[in-house]
Simulated scan of single mutants.
Amino acid sequence: MLIRSSVLLLMTVVFMTSLADEAELRIDTKSFVVTLDGLPTPSCHAATVVETAPGRLMAAWFGGSQEGAPDVRIWGAHYEQGRWSNAVPLTESLMDGDEAHWNPVLFKTDNELVLHFKAGKSPRLWRGLYRTSIDKGLNWSGVQSHPAGFLGPVRNKPVSLPNGRLIYPSSTEHQGWRVHFERPLPQGSRRIEVGDPQMLGAIQPTILTHSDGRLQALCRTHSGVIAETWSLDNGDNWSELEPTELPNPNSGIDAITLGNGLHLLVYNPVIAGRTPLAIALSKDGVDWQLETVLEEGDGEFSYPAVIEDSGGKIHIVYTWQRKAIRHVQIDYKK
């Protein structure tokens, strides 16, 4: 059954395999990155995940007394042989010690692991920062700033194109919600704005890659739907934002193009609330099939991050009730 309206998404779905010729999803494991009785902070949110080496992952999130509080810092943990390490802080107080830290994004390049994050009293005031590691996240460089006017990837992972071009999906909130993309260049970063004539109010894009070279970004909005924008020239220009038929309750999403060419989206398939949390698949990025529900019931299950590792496993991390970060490992038949 294809997703054509938010009404269809209110049905209870546990597992569907109508795209089984391309991918059959199977949950291998579901666990907490840190146990509920071992949480280092009362509240946590906005996880990110990266494969640091075959069979090894690293996750990061922000945690403190509550979102936006001056004690919020970035925390991280490593995964190996089916177990998560103890959580450790990855950032410390900066010059303005009363600023919260926000929205970490882990991304591995050929030579190093990069931790992007934001610092500020609110998303309208924050600035983009990053640290690097040459030993898979065990030790980190000092904190560096993105150039003035640039934030880096604001919530979802960058995309590296076959031609080596790197694109940061980004957005701002200080003059309304606006999506843009950033291209780090040796001679200075370039920022590409995205028009929003319908005033959908979009932020936090996530990028899909298509076999014909097109790029597609799906975006969170405050208009009850996921918005999309397309690029036909490797990210140099992007189309104006358009609404999709996918619902969005003003909550973060993430998506990935799998190795077999299918597109996978993790999102809250409702227009209000942050439950359930589900996975959808698409052959073309336009028609989406709800495949499996990761979490349902009262509370908040939100802000997913998804990757496919070098062995073909899918890993998803997400906020569990603002009290923990959950990790789901999924196998799929290609």
Rank of each mutant, 00 (worst) to 15 (best):
I3N: 04
S6M: 03
V14T: 13
F15C: 09
S18Q: 14
S18K: 11
S18H: 14
D21K: 15
A23S: 15
D28G: 02
T29M: 10
V34N: 12
T35G: 12
T41R: 09
A53M: 10
G55K: 09
M58L: 13
A59G: 07
W61M: 08
W61L: 08
W61P: 05
G64A: 09
S65H: 07
E67D: 13
D71H: 05
G76S: 09
S85A: 08
N86R: 14
A87N: 01
A87D: 01
L90E: 06
L90M: 14
L90I: 04
E92H: 15
P104V: 12
P104W: 02
L106R: 05
T109V: 01
D110F: 08
N111Y: 06
L115S: 04
L125D: 15
L125P: 02
S133I: 06
I134H: 05
G137F: 05
L138G: 06
N139F: 05
W140H: 07
Q144G: 00
V159W: 05
V159D: 03
L161K: 08
I167H: 03
Q175E: 15
F181Y: 14
E182K: 01
R183N: 08
P184A: 00
L185W: 01
P186T: 00
S189N: 14
S189D: 15
R190C: 03
V194W: 07
V194P: 12
G195T: 09
D196E: 05
T206K: 00
I207N: 01
G213K: 10
R214W: 12
R214E: 15
L215E: 04
Q216S: 14
L218Y: 12
L218S: 03
H222F: 01
G224R: 04
G224P: 05
L232Y: 13
G235Q: 10
D236N: 14
P243A: 15
P247W: 02
P247Y: 02
S251W: 13
A255D: 11
I256P: 00
G259I: 08
L262M: 15
A272I: 09
G273I: 05
P276S: 10
A280R: 00
A280E: 11
E291D: 10
V293H: 01
G297C: 12
E300I: 07
E300F: 06
S302A: 15
S302E: 07
I307K: 07
G312I: 10
I314F: 11
I316R: 13
V317M: 08
Y318C: 06
Y318E: 01
Q321F: 08
R326A: 14
V328Y: 04
V328S: 10
V328W: 03
